[in-house]
Amino acid sequence: MSKFGELIDVEIPVLLEFYTDWNDQSTAMHVVLRDVAAALGDKAKVIKIDVDKNEELAEALRVKALPTLIIYKGGEMKWRQSGEVDANSLIDVLQEYL
């Protein structure tokens, strides 16, 4: 999990999406996340984490529903939500932490 710590312990917001390929809501979010990443450029990171390949991390963060979206900044969780969110709403939330 030390790699995870390095991933989130940065001064720009990091949006994580916990997903699986077999979950339709998760796969629908991929397009939204691409739009968010394009809109914010290098002001924020957008990272997708496959729950099937990262079970230990998902369990440690108590990810129960998919997709689960979490924003970290400076190693601290700032925001969390499960379910689909539109691109504009995610951009608005991320801008609070820029």
Rank of each mutant, 00 (worst) to 15 (best):
M1F: 13
M1I: 13
K3N: 15
F4M: 08
F4T: 01
F4D: 03
L7D: 07
I8T: 15
E11Q: 15
I12W: 02
I12F: 05
P13M: 04
V14A: 00
L15Y: 06
Y19A: 02
Y19D: 06
D21S: 14
W22T: 14
W22E: 02
Q25E: 10
Q25F: 07
S26F: 04
S26P: 07
V32K: 00
R34Q: 14
V36D: 06
A39C: 03
G41D: 01
D42Q: 10
D42A: 12
D42P: 10
K43S: 13
A44E: 08
K45F: 13
K45R: 15
K45V: 00
V46D: 12
I49W: 03
D52V: 03
K53H: 07
K53T: 08
N54I: 08
N54E: 11
E56R: 12
E56T: 13
E59H: 05
L61E: 05
R62K: 12
K64N: 11
A65Q: 10
L66A: 05
K73G: 04
K73A: 00
G74R: 13
G74F: 09
G75R: 08
R80T: 13
R80N: 06
Q81A: 14
E84T: 13
V85A: 11
D86W: 02
D86H: 13
N88L: 09
N88R: 10
L90F: 09
V93R: 04
L94Y: 06
L94A: 03
L98T: 15
